[in-house]
Design a protein around this nucleic acid. Structure first.
Lengths: 346, 346
DNA sequence: GTTCCTCATGATATCGATAACATATACCCG
DNA sequence: CGGGTATATGTTATCGATATCATGAGGAAC
């Protein structure tokens, strides 16, 4: 910069593409092309334009661009909670997958209610996302209608909905919990208890519970040891309270399965606080393979779910439809893996 | 619905405001008014319009609206990680505070690098947010320039930057860690160790470490017991590995302070795994008051930070500038509280 | 040298809503 | 009943970019 320092005009207005064009001595259209990857602009012109861009501190206005190009570059994703590290991982997977494509994530959370989900869906659709990722298959009728008339690809995740809207990336929570029961039954446990939330708001939680009940029945084991405690998402603290209730009602329970690792961890800590030995006095298992389950002592047996992969795959499927062939290839269902991780708590 | 089922026209195009207007027999402008809170439209007209809206499944297009109104309704927030429950809480606080105002959050995460922050800031500014919330005070020069020329209110959080851009909602990590040291010194501990990450990427971590060193020096206690382990954010697992290293080099350490509760939890579990008694053999403290610290056994002494409140207050300050008086009231700094929470681990 | 093609660039219309102004109708009051 | 005011609605221009078509310059081939 051998030239005199360029005086910065004190304009409160942010510079526009026309300002850049004027300064670079080209048309606005050429500026638009120069700022877009893969369009042909001569090297000299591009340099002039970039110089003007830097001098003015210009940043492209995508809200204007998306109006004329009819592509907003948004993808919406709705999860039950961003405080839950499983869903945070999914959100991270989505973001990471979107990053290379220049798509921007609009993230919302429902607090596990379909009513808030409906509101969120509507709010997001106002931004005209090019695709939308939902958690689970439970939605209000109005939400379904809104999604249908929006005409954008939808991916439901984390479950296998009985009535899929469009695409699905998920797994059967019922089967996964069933597998956990069977794995532990093979180790000799017979009196199983289950800890979960009180309502059906958390559909994945309900499915896991059903999977538990079904597996117990199939194996011909003692049934009925179900404790419901707290509104989903059931916290660490509530897991601790729930196991107290479990031990009071069914003191001879041999193994307790929890709807998530957080409640399992709470249960585990409560047991230790009471001087019980895990797994000798009682075995505890969770679901989700949270970091805390791997590194607490004893480590908690759990079901590992590919949370991050769910996010990446969901985003990838959207991208394929958005950027790829116009034609939707029908309701594809992607099954994501899960596996039982046995640790010291069982 | 006593009427015959309305046949759904197979139009791939999403309906526009003009379609609604046509159907309701009014002008587009009236539709726009009817869909906006607080504008005067007669009851009969509004009902006609709402009927048309529902029949067509119309959803307002805000990207178009924000172009003419010159208000996008976006607020950007950039945090180091969304997998960290402290920052997830802050994001939740922001979202909750924005909800009533109709503003939509654009959330991004930097993985603790200023380079990715710069990229994110630029990407977000392309969406023309009306305000932006950042974590910490470390930014690239270019990021600062971009923010300045964007001319929107900026709130830096979670720290007290030495060179604030605009507004600040945070606390002194240095002082907070110093308070923790002093609190434990009062209980009689003298040989303090510190566990943190290896680089200065995590500026809050660095500040906590400085606060630790300074407090130790001021109290005239033995210095130098610092273990750096792993790239921030330091995980539970790395906390466990770090305390092994600490015990090898300084076996007589009485109390170990960790950059966060996650590493403290890892350290705690590793000690238990080795059969050490906490706090009798060694005391352990963390930072951040994560849920796990409260409910693990023994509970971990830590510094509680109002993560959620930081988010709410940061958002509130933005809203005041955005929706309120045009005039910025200068660089206001809001101090958020913190407090030492003593538990069984010390 | 003429024709044809490629590549760089410009001109204009347009995306879908809203701001700002214009107009029409109803209502109020002395 | 006339003038003024409030309320409801319509008309037009506009936000800032991009799609599309048009144009011009340069080069290759014969």
């Amino acid at each position: 910069m051998g030239k005199a320092a360029s005086s910065r005009p004190i304009e409160s207005q942010a510079p526009t593409m026309a300002d850049v064009a004027l300064r670079a001595g080209v048309s606005a259209m050429t500026v638009s092309r120069a700022l877009k990857e893969g369009s042909r602009v001569s090297k000299a012109t591009r340099e002039k334009i970039m110089a003007a861009v830097n001098e003015l501190g210009y940043v492209l206005d995508q809200s204007a661009g998306s109006l004329s190009s009819r592509k907003t570059g948004f993808v919406a994703a709705i999860v039950p909670s961003i405080n839950n590290s499983n869903f945070a991982d999914t959100a991270r997977g989505i973001t990471d997958e979107l990053e290379s494509t220049g798509l921007q994530l609009l993230l919302g959370y429902t607090d596990y209610t379909v009513e808030k989900e409906e509101k969120l869906i509507e709010a997001m659709l106002r931004r005209r996302p090019e695709g939308i990722i939902l958690t689970g298959g439970a939605h209000t009728e109005r939400a379904r209608k809104l999604l249908k008339s929006a005409g954008i690809p939808v991916v439901e995740t984390w479950e296998l909905p009985s009535k899929p809207i469009d695409q699905v990336v998920g797994f059967s929570n019922e089967e996964a919990m069933g597998l956990l029961v069977k794995t532990l039954a093979r180790k000799g446990y017979r009196k199983f208890g289950y800890i979960g939330g009180t309502t059906s708001r958390d559909t994945r939680g309900s499915q896991r519970r059903e999977g538990f009940v079904r597996a117990i029945e199939e194996l011909g084991l003692p049934t009925g040891r179900l404790v419901s405690f707290g509104v989903p998402p059931i916290s660490i603290e509530q897991g601790g309270q729930a196991i107290v209730s479990m031990l009071e009602r069914w003191p001879d329970t041999e193994a307790v399965l929890c709807v998530s690792d957080l409640s399992a961890f709470g249960a585990l800590m409560e047991c230790k606080r009471r001087g019980m030995k895990v797994p000798q006095d009682i075995a505890i298992a969770g679901f989700g393979d949270y970091e805390v389950a791997a590194f607490c002592h004893p480590g908690i047996t759990t079901v590992n779910v590919d949370c991050y992969g769910i996010g990446r795959q969901a985003a990838r499927r959207l991208i394929q439809v958005i950027r790829g062939a116009e034609k939707k290839q029908g309701q594809e269902i992607v099954l994501t893996g899960y596996r039982v991780v046995e640790r010291e708590s069982t």
